[in-house]
Design a protein around this nucleic acid. Structure first.
Length: 191
DNA sequence: GTACAGATTGAG
DNA sequence: TCAATCTGTACT
């Protein structure tokens, strides 16, 4: 399998486009001279000041969400519930607080528990991701990056459905079909 | 210095 | 369905 590192142009596309194209791509994490590789099978889009579920709702800039405003291709990582990290990838151009949450990976590197990355909190534990990855540039980093492998996922293999865990944002936003996953893939997060 | 929210998870 | 659990952020 030939891995082609994704370039800046991939990330600066509209968020919903990038979110869908991210499916089937590979996340490579270099750790202790070993490479942990996972295929992205589930994503969620968060779109800027409009989206009530986004941290950047109303365009407010805080220390916590300033990363979201960076140009596409950066990591936005943040802690929820005091115990789980969320791995996001910023999208679109600088100044647009849009990003894609990586919700689940299918381990390519052999692991004991193959569902070890089936959930946004779990995949960060597996890959040993923490605050130090905030603002990491995926096009330059030597320890984490994304690559394309076997080609695009077919359009009708992609399921779009409502996002998870954001009921507080109200029905309108909570029901937006901005969660994408690969049809019949056993590694998506279960609920 | 203190209050408080929170893009989850697993068990029941 | 429900509570555990705790850091960073945003206030005073």
């Amino acid at each position: 399998m030939v891995y082609k590192k994704l370039k800046r142009e991939f990330y600066t596309q509209p968020t919903l486009v990038t979110a869908k194209q991210l499916l089937g791509k590979y996340l490579i994490r270099k750790f202790n001279n070993k490479e942990l590789i996972g295929k992205i099978v589930e994503t969620e889009a968060y779109i800027g000041p409009k989206d009530r579920a986004s941290h950047a709702f109303r365009g407010k800039v805080t220390k916590r969400n300033e990363t979201e405003y960076l140009e596409g291709g950066h990591i936005y990582i943040y802690l929820v519930y005091g115990m789980y990290w969320q791995l996001n990838i910023t999208t679109n151009i600088k100044g647009k607080p849009e990003c894609v949450l990586i919700r689940a990976l299918e381990p390519v590197t052999p692991v004991q528990d193959m569902r070890i990355a089936s959930g946004p909190g779990k995949l960060c534990q597996w890959l040993k991701l923490d605050k130090s990855f905030d603002k990491e540039d995926l096009t330059k980093s030597k320890r984490i990056w994304l690559a394309g492998g076997g080609g695009q996922i077919d359009e009708n293999e992609i399921i779009a459905t409502k996002r998870i865990g954001i009921d507080y944002a109200g029905h309108y936003w909570a029901n937006k079909p901005w969660r994408f996953y690969i049809k019949n893939n056993p590694f998506i997060s279960k609920r």
